[in-house]
């Protein structure tokens, strides 16, 4: 299995690791049985992602995609963050091995889950804005 230099770089030096104690939205996707869980925390200010942090249990690709995804949405308006696709994460990482593509989907869904939680806390139904959160399955 070959990881790109970019993946290895983000794995060994992940950006935005940690928690936000007073987060405005928290999203968690994945399952222990599948071997990956991503938890994303967001702080929203003026409709923008003011801060984002993550914690991930998972393989090298899971950690690298979390890191890259947080970097790609930091400072961006919510609508833009919601448009982040797993493909964009993969491209930014200069590719992922085929068996690891699901990690990028997980990263995309983790962001959606955090934004969804943000709207829920505001008393706004997130479904029309965010759409459903995919339940990613590990068993192909």
């Amino acid at each position: 299995m070959e990881y790109s230099d970019k993946v290895l770089e983000h794995f060994s030096n992940p950006r935005n690791v940690g928690e936000i104690p007073d987060a405005d939205g928290v999203g968690e996707v994945g399952s222990p049985a599948c071997g990956d869980i991503m938890k994303m925390y967001i702080k929203v200010k003026d409709g923008k992602i003011d801060d984002v942090k993550f914690k991930t249990f998972g393989c090298g690709a899971a950690i690298a995609t979390s890191s890259m995804a947080t970097e790609l949405i930091k400072g961006k308006p919510l609508e833009e963050a919601l448009k982040l696709t797993n493909k964009a994460v993969v491209e930014a990482l200069e590719g992922l091995p085929p068996v690891k593509i699901h990690c990028s989907v997980l990263a995309e869904q983790a962001i959606k889950a955090a934004i969804s939680d943000y709207y829920t806390r505001l008393g706004i139904d997130p479904l029309p804005i965010v759409g459903p959160i995919q339940d990613t399955h590990c068993h192909a």
């Binding site: 299995m1 599948c34 071997g35 393989c59 090298g60 690709a61 068996v99 690891k100 699901h102 590990c138 068993h139 192909a140």
Partner: peptide, 11 residues
């Protein structure tokens, strides 16, 4: 013995 090393996703 993790999934990832073998290329399959099951442990």
């Amino acid at each position: 013995g993790s999934a990832c090393t073998s290329g399959s996703l099951d442990p």
